[in-house]
Amino acid sequence: MFLGFVLTMGGSSMHNQMVVRNEPMRKNFRNGRFRNEEAMPLGTSATFFGLLKRFIMERKVDASPDEALPVRDLDQEQLRQLPNDSLFVIRLGHSSVLLKVYGEFWLLDPVLSKRASPFSFIGPKRFHRPPITVADLPPIDKVLISHNHYDHLDKATIRQLKGKTRQFLVPLGVEKNLIDWGVRPTDILSFDWWQELNVGQGLIAFTPARHFSGRGLNDGNSSLWGSWVIKTPDESLFFSGDSGYFHGFGQIGRRYGPFDLTMIETGAYDRDWPEIHMTPEQSVQANIDLQGHTMMPIHNGTFDLAFHAWYEPLERVARVADERNVRLATPVPGDILNMRQLVTGTRWWQSLMPQERSLASA
């Protein structure tokens, strides 16, 4: 389990004429490594051996569900029949999201493999099947990647997608991974923070996050990480990728908000890494900073990546959203959300919680 955690957390061919450089962020790159705008002092116990001791000694409670989680199966014909005059959002699990943007299919951080790991036999394993396989997806116009950790950038998924995807949008440095996996350089656009791409449906912008990158022992922060803004004439979406809480959410909200839907990391948090993942309370605050109308918690319910129970992120975020009058969308994987008639969904996880936990949270 610990090895899986370490591997998951991480141990250009840009078409410049297509990208508007608002504020080149070379100050976030020094000595061959990318940096956060806010310093990230690690917690005193967040050392390799400190975490190893916790993984060995600390008892985890309800780390994975005891029964199958609900999934709405999807097929290509069903997706094709969705109207082309609107925007649809479909959560696939963890942080993977499928969009139908006025007829085009886009993917955000697609990880559809059995494990979020470089290996097929070890590492965090899915709690539920994906609602659709890569083979069953329709042709994809764009794939947007937030950073290169294994639970956000999956080699097997990308290799399957390269033959059916027109364009990959990635942070600076991540293009090297894709090229190694056979994606053509001409199909990749690499972004620095605050760079924008004008598309037929509107605007895509790559915005900051407070996190880090790396897929091995020696490549830490050699590629960038961030979040994505998607704006059409009628809708505005935000996708957080992974991030600790920071002032950048307010900056993004002032520049690009308000947002009709924010997809915000809510899961895999812990006292030993507060700088790189948010608590559910911070996730709700990030939505408020972003001027989000509806928040969809992502980064939960698919992989065991921390010490908390699998349902805790959803339970805590629902409670604080109620307290702060924030509208929450909690679809099960495969649910189709129409941005023009946004249905928030039920609190489906509560029926799957152990009874004593459900009673305690009631």
Rank of each mutant, 00 (worst) to 15 (best):
Y150P: 00
G202P: 13
A135D: 13
T133N: 01
R210N: 14
P138L: 12
P139W: 07
K114Q: 15
D180M: 03
L217E: 09
N198A: 15
T157M: 06
R184S: 15
Q167G: 02
N177L: 10
R115M: 10
A205E: 10
T157Q: 03
S120D: 13
I179D: 01
P124Y: 10
V134W: 09
S113Q: 06
L107C: 05
G214S: 09
N84C: 12
R215K: 08
Y150M: 03
K162N: 10
P208D: 07
Y150S: 04
L144W: 06
V101L: 11
Q160A: 12
K162F: 12
L153F: 10
N148G: 09
W106H: 07
I188V: 07
W193S: 06
V97F: 02
G216Q: 10
H149D: 04
P131A: 09
P185S: 06
P171V: 10
G173K: 03
A209P: 09
R159F: 06
A156V: 13
G202N: 09
P185E: 05
Y102Q: 00
F168S: 01
F212A: 14
V170N: 03
G214H: 11
H147T: 05
P171T: 08
K114D: 15
K164A: 08
G93W: 09
K176A: 15
L153M: 08
R210C: 10
P131Y: 04
I140G: 06
V111N: 05
G103T: 02
D180Q: 11
P171H: 11
S113W: 06
S95P: 00
L197V: 06
I204F: 15
K176I: 13
L92V: 01
Y102W: 05
K125N: 14
S146G: 11
R129F: 14
I132F: 13
I122H: 05
D187M: 06
V134R: 01
R166F: 08
P131T: 07
N148H: 12
N198L: 13
R126I: 08
N221Y: 01
F105P: 00
G214A: 11
P124A: 08
W181G: 02
I132E: 09
E175L: 01
Y150Q: 03
I90N: 02
A116N: 01
Y150T: 00
H94R: 00
H149I: 01
F212W: 14
D85M: 02
E175G: 14
N221A: 05
N84F: 08
Q201A: 14
H147L: 13
S95D: 11
V174R: 01
K125A: 15
F119R: 07
I132Y: 13
I158V: 15
L197C: 08
L197F: 09
F212C: 08
Q201W: 15
S213F: 11
N198T: 15
E104H: 10
L153Y: 07
F121H: 10
W106T: 02
T157Y: 09
I145K: 03
D192V: 02
L108D: 01
L203K: 13
I158P: 06
I204N: 03
V174G: 00
G163Y: 14
P124F: 12
L153I: 04
V170E: 03
H128G: 07
Q160D: 13
R166I: 04
F105Q: 04
I122P: 03
T165P: 04
L92R: 00
